[in-house]
């Protein structure tokens, strides 16, 4: 039965942590005084600095570690196509290499802002493409400490915002100043009541995120480091460390082999392409 194959993975990484990228320039940004408007303006500035990236290809590794220090590994290749339509999110295709029992399994996602994403999974053993439900926002991604929504939270319209304060950024850029903003998920099925985001004032990149669960308790902390600049314009974090403060488990996610301007088109993001993805 095919449903047992679909258990191994549940849904997808969509537009991968794009809010964490920003322009290289440190131009001054005029921000309003009202905390809600200021929080929104900071998110919009982060988003603006990522516009026009076109397409990307990259490989991802995750090291999952439990409270006893035991580790397991995940690996996938990812392609993203920027959607010029601001009413919709980007298109993403992910192909899994590890664990080896899901090798070749692939996920195609057409991201939306507040509606559930359109999502198809390809099961290589039976050559089946299956449209799957994408409402599972709060579930763990591949058994990791990342939830699906931690990947797809890139669109400005997915949250409302409140600027809290400015303070020194966390390590390793502790000499810089960060905007500290709260954001509240507007989409259904979120596992969070709020997130607190540290955004570097010099380049509008995310440095740290705290995730608060449905009871309002601190659940997880994400630290973003090893930023690299592409096309002289687009920053990408290459090391994302998610620590679960409740269970003691953690996941280190690293990006490698980032490339921009690959000439990808919608033909590379069809359900036909899903079956041949490599």
């Amino acid at each position: 039965m095919h449903i047992r194959d679909s258990l191994k993975l549940v849904t997808a990484v969509t537009a991968l942590l794009l809010p964490l990228s920003a322009s290289a320039s440190a131009e001054a940004v005029a921000l309003p005084d009202d905390p809600a408007a200021k929080g929104l303006a900071i998110a919009e500035e982060t988003d603006r600095r990522n516009q026009g990236f076109g397409d990307t290809k990259a490989t991802m590794k995750m090291i999952l570690e439990n409270a006893y220090g035991e580790t397991s590994e995940r690996a996938l290749r990812s392609m993203t196509l920027e959607n010029p339509n601001p009413e919709e999110g980007d298109w993403t295709l992910n192909v899994f290499d590890k664990p080896r029992d899901v090798d070749g399994t692939a996920l195609l996602t057409y991201a939306k802002i507040l509606d559930p994403d359109d999502q198809w999974m390809y099961l290589p053993a039976v050559k089946r493409v299956k449209r799957i439900s994408s409402v599972n926002k709060s579930g763990p991604f591949m058994g990791s400490e990342f939830a699906f929504e931690d990947f797809s939270s890139t669109e400005v319209g997915k949250y409302s915002y409140k600027w809290l304060r400015d303070e020194l950024c966390p390590e390793p850029v502790a000499e810089r100043t960060c905007h500290v903003t709260e954001r509240y998920p507007l989409y259904e099925h979120s596992g969070y009541t709020r997130q607190v985001v540290w955004t570097d004032t010099t380049d509008y990149q995310g440095r740290k995120v705290e995730y608060y669960d449905r009871k309002g308790e601190l659940l997880k902390t994400l630290t973003l480091t090893d930023y690299k600049l592409y096309e002289s314009k687009f920053w990408r974090a290459h090391d994302l460390f998610m620590a679960n403060v409740v269970t003691g488990k953690s996941t280190r996610l690293t990006w490698e082999e980032y490339s921009f301007g690959n000439g990808l088109t919608q033909n590379d993001f069809s359900t036909n392409a899903l079956q041949r993805a490599r």
Binding site: M1, R4, V10, L64, G143
Partner: peptide, 10 residues
């Protein structure tokens, strides 16, 4: 259970 071992019962 969505654990790291991909446990499933059907």
């Amino acid at each position: 259970p969505n654990d790291a071992a991909s446990t499933a019962v059907l």
